[in-house]
Simulated scan of single mutants.
Amino acid sequence: MPESHSAMTRSRERSGSAYNGYVMLAVLAALTVFVIYLIFNAIPADGASRFEKIMFVGTLALGVLSGVLVSIGFFMIQPNQAAVITLFGEYRGTVRKEGLQWVWPWMMKQKISARAHNIHSEKVKINDLRGNPIEVACNVVWRVADTAQAVFDVDDYKEFVNIQIEAGLRTVGARHPYDDMSDEDETTLRGSADVVNNELRVELNERLQVAGIIVDEAGLTHLAYAPEIAGAMLRRQQADAVIAARKKVVIGAVGMVEDALAKLSNDGVVDLDDERRAAMVSNLMVVLCGDREAQPVVNAGTLYQ
């Protein structure tokens, strides 16, 4: 049977060592002065021996080579910036100390920004929990927390972030409906922004953990039905609004009618039988719930004529 592949070894950031760049800058200046001195004051005379000439050339070459090697090792670290140090492919630590730094010239230096990055995603077309096509987009604030993971555990951590943002947005968007179409109090994309944004941030942190990335903020910036159903859903929302308004009017009218009948009965203004009570209820409901003003009819006789 073939041997199974072992799981990927996760990198962990550790502190790297670097020398004070200003001290090494003084060493470079001393080497420069030494080379200049050799050129202008230590050139062998015409009658010098071959050994003296070889020593001069060797010393001059060594001074120039030392100056070149020293100058290669300089690098600058700005605030919220780091440099990943490797030696022949082996991770030797991360330098986060600000200012001018110096390492041996055969060590490779890769600078990484640890500052906050802001990404506004493209509009993504997905299906919500009920299968309705919708368009969503989000804004994400992220930063590199572990430089070793960002450099060694993923191929391109910035591209990795962009892809995972889209994947996380699709996952969270499919968990909830766009809007609440029932009487149940459920989480919706439109009505529960805080809950959805928090879910998106948690989802992205889980996905980007392998790259040493931390998401500080995440939130939806665009939410709409897809164009092919936008018109139908707008009419449905309008109908829901009309029904809700009608329901409120009817409930209020019923309460007003109950109060009116109770007041008439308690004060002894008029004594109505069931038939006349039903007629009065009907008339009052028409007056209170109608879209137009009711036209009164004056009864010149009695209630029973």
Rank of each mutant, 00 (worst) to 15 (best):
D183P: 01
E98V: 11
H222Y: 10
D180F: 06
E135F: 10
I134L: 08
L65Q: 06
Y304M: 09
R235G: 11
E13Y: 05
P177S: 05
D194A: 12
Y37N: 14
C289M: 04
Q149P: 05
A45E: 12
V250Q: 04
A224K: 00
A45F: 05
A193Y: 07
V68L: 09
E98I: 11
V103N: 02
T94S: 04
T32K: 01
A300S: 13
M256Q: 12
A150N: 00
P133H: 03
A145P: 01
V210P: 02
E199Y: 07
K97N: 13
D179F: 03
T9L: 14
E13R: 05
N266F: 10
E258N: 14
R276E: 10
A253E: 08
I77F: 03
A244R: 15
N162G: 13
D259I: 12
T221Q: 06
V257L: 03
I112W: 02
G89H: 06
D194C: 05
H5G: 08
E3Y: 11
I85M: 03
N205E: 07
P227C: 07
S66K: 03
E52D: 14
G67V: 03
K247A: 15
Q305A: 12
H5C: 12
L28S: 09
L288M: 08
I112L: 15
A48F: 04
Y304T: 12
V242F: 10
T171P: 00
L65E: 08
L189F: 05
V210H: 09
T188S: 06
A260F: 13
Q81W: 04
A218G: 05
V242W: 05
P296M: 06
H120F: 10
H117C: 11
Y157C: 09
Y22T: 07
A239P: 00
L28A: 15
D194V: 11
N41Q: 12
D46I: 08
R170T: 10
D274A: 14
A116E: 11
T188C: 00
V257C: 14
K111P: 06
K247S: 14
G47S: 15
I134P: 00
V161S: 03
Q237C: 07
D291S: 11
G21D: 03
V210F: 06
A279W: 02
N266H: 13
M107V: 04
V95C: 01
S282H: 10
F56P: 04
I77H: 00
E166L: 15
L60N: 05
A226N: 02
A262Y: 08
R175D: 10
K158G: 12
M233I: 06
T86N: 02
R92M: 11
A18T: 14
A83E: 04
Y157A: 03
S15D: 08
L208P: 00
K123S: 15
M256T: 09
E166R: 05
Q110M: 13
L129W: 07
A253H: 01
E206L: 09
A61W: 07
A114H: 11
A114Y: 14
S113Q: 03
V257D: 08
V286M: 11
W142K: 03
V27K: 01
R115V: 08
Y178R: 09
M1T: 09
I213K: 00
V103A: 00
I112G: 02
V242I: 10
A148R: 00
E98A: 13
Q237V: 09
G290D: 06
S182F: 02
V144Q: 01
R143T: 11
A218Q: 01
